[in-house]
Amino acid sequence: MARIELTEIQKSWGAVQGVRDVNIDIADEEFIVFLGPSGCGKTTTMRMIAGLEDPSEGRIVMDGEVMNDIDARDRDVAMVFQGYALYPNMTIYENIRFPLRMRGVPRDQHDAKVRRAAEFVELTDYLDRKPGALSGGQRQRAALARAIVRQPQVFLMDEPLSNLDAKLRQAMRVQIKHIQRELKITTVYVTHDQIEAMTLADRIVIMENGAIQQIGTPDQIYNDPANTFVASFIGSPPMNLIEGKLENGAFRAPGIEVANLPTRHSGAVTLGIRPEDCTVAGGSPHLSGTVYGVEPTGDLTYLTVKAGEKLIEVKASREYRASMNKPETVTFDLSRLYLFDTTTGQRLS
């Protein structure tokens, strides 16, 4: 429905810089997710797209039109908030109808549009209730219905599922993706939950300290991280990052030795390996240490091995069990190793 271009966006409050040098081109109908820890600038960036904050510098363009000086109410965007933001004095019907009234949609179309939006989120039985009489999941669906009722050009969703329990969150995730695909509306979604980001996004924008760290598809972000921040932020447990020395293609750190690495770099580097790319024991182990912790989860076992002072996470088989401090070896999948510059954190080719 709309293409959004953010060019050289900066946002600062006095000496505090919230967002710096943000450049993104969001395609029409794309589902893009801003992911990052609290305070990384993702919500501020979304609020600037909504018109709720003014950028200090840079341009926001929607479908070729510069939006910087256009009020939030005059931008064709709909926003879903973390706290639902349903109007407590109105029934769910009136809440969903509110944007239609404000945008001057002819009155005779209201009822049909409200009921259609409510059907979309399976909320038709609750239209005459006040928000206070609904559960968290129902309130979130009501907020979604209010966003979709007038079919805006852009959906903005600010951590819409963070107040829901895990089961409901999963169900709502599926529903949000379904609605977005059905309505084909460009969607910007903010979250700090990597599972939400990975499952919903066409592309993920990873942010830290107000700056973009990487933009890519979920596969690119997971398999081809640009730096140690991205590598450690995505994945559960996160990627193991081991600081050591590289000499003549051999990486060494206390208790760890990986030879024959296809790289010409040398010196201080950080080696990255995901827990699922580690195998307990194996033919020619790269790590020798002791068992620090064993956490069975049912479908697999999380094993923590101590090598030198470093704790390495390994995803072991569901049957794996070991006693504390037992000597253990781990083999790395050499095709899934990553090397990063220890000083800058950037990925080495």
Binding site: L52, M79, F81, G83, F98, P99, R146
Partner: peptide, 12 residues
Amino acid sequence: ELEDAAKTDGAG
């Protein structure tokens, strides 16, 4: 958030 929601819904 209530005010922000109303603004994006088109209210002055």
